[in-house]
Design a protein around this nucleic acid. Structure first.
Length: 396
DNA sequence: CCTCCACTGGAAACCTAGGCTC
DNA sequence: GAGCCTAGGTTTCCAGTGGAGG
């Protein structure tokens, strides 16, 4: 097998399909954001007072994933930064899901204020309140003008409550002559429900909704990007239509559509094709699904993996008691500590939230109440991921 | 209509890893 | 270094419960 030679030969000889791969990267911010004029202007309007040195209203942005919330926000902020050219304006961006936790959200925020560098916010050990105080003091005494973007704010609230938001929305005069304006970005339209009404009224002084893109809009966005990314005639309008249709049938998610097109391009390139065809897109779509699952599993703690694996041993679902026995045996077999049933039940809830497993409470009358548990992901994809895992490699 | 199963899920206590102050 | 603090994960305890079978 001359597999490697073949790959290298293709790479050398084959005309690359991409001229500018960057244009299809998720973090790429195009010069203009099509179909988002209204939102761009609205955000600019709200934040404009900063240029006169006064505090803008807090702002709350809603919309499903891939509707351009983050892109539009970053776009406006970069313009703002260029326009303001003063050093006491700080534009902070924290994705609360990636930060994962109240403390780390604050710590990430503190980095933008250069607090981290001065060793005022250690990695752990401080009370949340103390961190908030230090951040407030820093803003106040350095007269900083701060815009804090909290991306995926619904995640923060759902898991950790609104304490941080409460502290920041109420900090008002305590920060003078500096200020802190919040821009919350939420994927979940219902996230307001669990919020303290005082936090809500302060946070959503201004609100903006990002509707999903229609299939037509997606098509136009993809056409535009494809023009930049590929050589001419690599991405036919049929191929683009198909990407737009697949992504559009989900929830008008532009990020997914763009990822799909990029990966389809990569597949075509690897195959040595001169254009993207239907099967490239099919395979790209499968790969994205597989990667999603793979990534989700990989980053799971050991116990969660063990429980997930135990679930996968049952075809057609199981219940808590049965699963606990299987899980205990598995732990013994691979030499992992066995948790209590109560805890397992809790972790099952986490796995449900991640969409890896479905666990719903059912009553079986005289035969008690339990959770009906089912695997939501392909078993083969799961086994493949686990076979590469050091702890679970041998387990079946 | 009542019973009673096999759990659920809340609450509190406990443990660990880390930082703080003195 | 002792004795304090917190966050986050876990265990322990237990009251509560939907509904099939009686």
């Amino acid at each position: 097998m001359s597999g490697i030679d073949e790959i290298f030969r293709r790479a050398k000889e084959g005309r690359p399909l991409f001229v500018n791969r960057e244009a299809l990267r998720p973090e790429y911010v195009p010069a203009t954001l099509p179909f988002r004029d209204a939102q761009t202007k609205a955000i600019a309007q709200v934040l404009a007072p900063i240029l006169r040195g006064s505090k803008p209203s807090n702002l709350l942005l809603y919309g499903k994933t891939g509707t351009g919330k983050t892109a539009v926000t970053n776009y406006v902020l970069s313009k703002l930064k260029a326009e303001a050219n003063t050093s006491d304006l700080i534009l902070a961006y924290v994705n609360t899901r990636l930060a994962d936790g109240e403390y780390r959200t604050l710590a990430d925020f503190a980095k933008f204020l250069d607090l981290r560098k001065e060793k005022q916010i250690p990695l752990t050990g401080l009370a949340i309140g103390e961190v908030v105080d230090r951040i407030s003091d820093n803003i106040k005494s350095n007269k900083k003008k701060v815009v804090l973007v909290l991306d995926e704010i619904d995640y923060l609230v759902k898991l950790f409550g609104d304490d941080i938001l409460y502290a920041f929305t109420r900090s008002g005069e305590r920060l003078a002559p500096g200020f802190l304006a919040l821009v919350g970005i939420s994927n979940d339209l219902k996230f307001k429900e669990g919020l303290d009404p005082r936090v809500l009224s302060s946070l959503s002084e201004e609100e903006l909704v990002f509707p999903p893109y229609t299939v037509d809009e997606l098509r136009e966005i993809l056409t535009e990007r494809a023009k930049m990314a590929f050589r001419p005639s690599v991405a036919s309008s049929a191929a683009i239509n198909m990407c737009a249709a697949i992504a559009g049938s989900e929830h008008g998610d532009a990020r997914r559509a763009i990822d799909l097109l990029r990966i389809a391009g990569e597949v075509a390139e690897r195959e040595g094709l001169s254009e993207i065809d239907e099967s490239c897109i099919r395979r790209a779509s499968d790969k994205m699904e597989h990667d999603r699952v793979d990534e989700a599993i990989r980053s799971l703690p050991v116990q969660n993996k063990a429980i997930l694996l135990a679930v996968s041993m049952f075809n057609g679902g199981t219940n808590t008691g049965e699963l606990y026995i299987a899980y205990s045996n598995l732990c013994k077999k691979i030499g992992v500590e066995t948790l209590t049933q109560r805890r397992m039940s809790g972790i099952l809830g986490d796995l449900d939230l991640l969409g890896l497993v479905e666990a719903s409470v059912v009553s079986k009358g005289r035969r008690g109440r339990t959770k009906k548990i089912q695997l939501l992901i392909g078993k083969d994809a799961l086994e493949k991921t686990f076979s590469e895992d050091t702890t679970f490699g041998a387990a079946n």
